[in-house]
Every structure is written in C-alpha cells, then in structure tokens.
C-alpha cells in the first residue's frame, strides 16, 4: 500500500510521466484519498503555472550589436592564426620571418656605419665680431617700459617726443625694419 512518504519520494516521476501505468494508478488513488498529498500536488502545479506566466525578459537592444562587435574582434584576433593553420605555416617559416624582421631592424644601423667618412681638414677665416651697436634699436619687445635718461647738463634739450624703436629680423638675409610708437 502506497503511503505519503512513497508518494512524495516518487512525486517527480509521477509529475513527469515517468512511472508505469500500474504505479500511476496507485498514486492517483492515494491522491484521491489523502488531502495532504493532494494539496502538495496542487501547490506545485499552481506555483509552476504562476512561474510560467511571468513574462520573459527581453535582451537589451544592444545585445546583438555587442555580440557582433565581439565576434568581429574575435575574427580579427583569430584570423592570422586561422590563415596560418590553413596554409600549414611551418615553424621554419615562422623562424625565417623572425630573422627577416630582425635583419630589417639592423639595416639603419649598418647604413649609418657605412656613411662614416673621414674628411680632409678645411681652413676657414672666422668672421670679425660685429661691433656693439649703441642704439635704441634693440631686438625684442618694445622698449616703451624703459625710461630714457636725459643728461642733466643739457636742459636745453629740445622737448621733442621720445621715440622708441624696435626692429624685427625678417628671413635669413637679416633685413631690419624699424617702427615707431608714440610715448605714453
């Protein structure tokens, strides 16, 4: 005679249709007469039904583009090796490639050494140093901030406006251009 313990132990087989017809009839007879096991069965069935009624979650919109992106990079990373597998690239060929790359790296060094040539000494006359030019012309910013000191013994110095200059070096021919600005 099937009891509650047997029923619960074999419940999954019963629910999933994995018991033979005779056993199934016995379990159904027990269900009909046992409120506890009948309730157990109802709770499992109703709970699973409720669970199945919950809407499925949907993948986010970016799921497939993201997968596409990852596959693309996977292909990118795998392809040289796949190509090498297809063409059965031998270890000797790999070694040859390494040697070629190494040799290529040494080429600039070798060429530099070959270009070293000892030249005959050349006599040259050093240019005379340019004399200092005492002038208001100064290279650089405007001299407007520099005070101009007038001699104390020349009160008759004409009260002409002081003019400040600057020059600008233009190009390689050293052309000087003057400009003037009014004093503040």
């Amino acid at each position: 005679m099937l009891n509650c313990s047997d029923f619960v132990r074999e419940y999954s087989d019963y629910r999933d249709g994995r018991v033979d017809p005779v056993r199934r009839a016995e379990m159904e007879a027990h269900l009909a007469g046992c409120s506890s096991c009948a309730r157990y069965d109802r709770v499992v069935v109703a709970g699973v039904d409720e669970l199945r009624s919950i809407p499925e979650i949907e993948p986010s919109w970016e799921f497939l583009p993201r997968l596409q992106h990852r596959i693309f990079h996977l292909e990118d990373g795998l392809s040289p090796w796949r190509r090498s597998e297809r063409s059965a690239m031998s270890p000797a060929f790999v070694l040859l490639l390494v040697l070629l790359i190494g040799a290529a790296a040494w080429v600039p060094t070798l060429r530099r050494q070959a270009a070293l040539v000892e030249l005959a000494p050349v006599a040259a006359v050093a240019p005379a140093p340019e004399p200092d030019v005492h002038t208001l012309f100064r290279e650089g910013p405007l001299l407007e901030s520099r005070p101009v000191l007038l001699p104390l013994d020349s009160p008759s110095t004409p009260l002409t406006p002081t003019v400040f200059f600057r020059y600008t070096r233009l190009g390689s021919n050293v052309v000087y251009r003057t400009a003037s600005v009014s004093p503040r």
Binding site: V8, R9, Y11, S12, R15, R39, Y40, R42, V43, V44, A46, G47, V48, E50
Partner: peptide
C-alpha cells in the same frame, strides 16, 4: 524532487 518540495513549502502559504 527536493527542489519541488522546497518550492512548495515556500509558496504554500500564498496558495
């Protein structure tokens, strides 16, 4: 079987 049993225990008060 154990999972179904536990599941039933948890939800039985609501059914």
């Amino acid at each position: 079987n154990r999972a179904r049993n536990s599941f039933a225990v948890l939800i039985e008060p609501l059914l």
